[in-house]
């Protein structure tokens, strides 16, 4: 079997179209994870014990069970309790929750590396806890978290093919469908590989650039 350029040209538009879905799934899932992860991280630092313990256990659970199980769980077990979700919605909830758990650890590390004196200075000028986080702690913690956050952006992107198990029409699903229809898998799967490689390399470079930019912008030379 050798490479068929004409076949490649025929299937490329459909695969690039599916790439948009993959990017959207990764982007949406990441946005959910980024916000929810911050909520998890801050919740674990409140003085309210029942909340911190519950969130810590939840994060632990999400991190130690497979993503694919969580996707199946939200999609197939939900309806048994009357919560029927479309593949997209179920997939975004599952992947968002899963990565929120990982990102919360990244944020936690960032927050913990802000010196204690910063918190004390905030008390001394009488900022509220919310102001302390928003104005002083997070602007210092987030730049420290950018590298870790970037790694998970690439991971979440590489995990989007798992959404094909519940029928989300992303890149992997499209390639498999094309292969099945034409009895040729070499070109579609190779293209998928190249697309993932290009986007991963591009993201890694952008994240490094962004990290440098944010440090400069915040005056942390």
């Amino acid at each position: 079997m050798h490479w068929d350029w004409q076949f490649t040209a025929e299937i490329l538009p459909r695969l690039l179209w599916a790439t948009l879905n993959t990017l959207m799934a990764a982007g949406l899932g990441y946005a959910i994870a980024a916000v929810l992860g911050l909520v998890f991280a801050i919740a674990q630092r409140t003085p309210f014990r029942p909340l911190t313990v519950t969130v810590r256990e939840l994060v632990e659970f999400l991190r130690s069970t497979p993503l694919v199980l969580q996707i199946f769980f939200v999609y197939y077990v939900g309806p048994e309790y009357g919560v029927s979700l479309s593949p997209w919605v179920a997939g975004m909830i599952a992947i968002g929750l899963h990565y929120a758990a990982y990102l919360s650890e990244v944020y936690r590390g960032g927050i913990e590396s802000v010196p204690k004196g910063q918190w004390e200075a905030c008390t001394a000028i009488n900022l509220t806890t919310a102001q302390t986080y928003r104005r002083i702690i997070l602007p210092q913690a987030l730049p420290l978290s950018v590298a870790g956050m970037g790694n998970y952006l690439i991971s979440i992107f590489k995990d989007t093919p798992m959404l094909s198990v519940i029928g989300v029409a992303e890149l992997m699903q499209a390639a498999t469908a094309i292969g099945g229809q034409n009895y040729r898998y070499l070109e579609p799967y190779t293209i998928v590989g190249v697309v993932f490689l290009v986007i991963s390399l591009f993201s890694a470079a952008s994240i490094r650039g962004f990290e440098a930019w944010i440090r400069r912008k915040l005056g942390m030379y």
Binding site: E120, A124, L127, G219
Partner: peptide, 26 residues
């Protein structure tokens, strides 16, 4: 009000912004 041995200025703000933070926010 309190001043600390290690200053504890907010590193992401200029000198002026450091001094405006409390008056504006609080």
């Amino acid at each position: 009000g309190m001043c600390f041995q290690h200053f504890n200025l907010f590193p992401h703000m200029t000198a002026l912004e450091n001094c405006m933070e409390g008056p504006v926010q609080v």
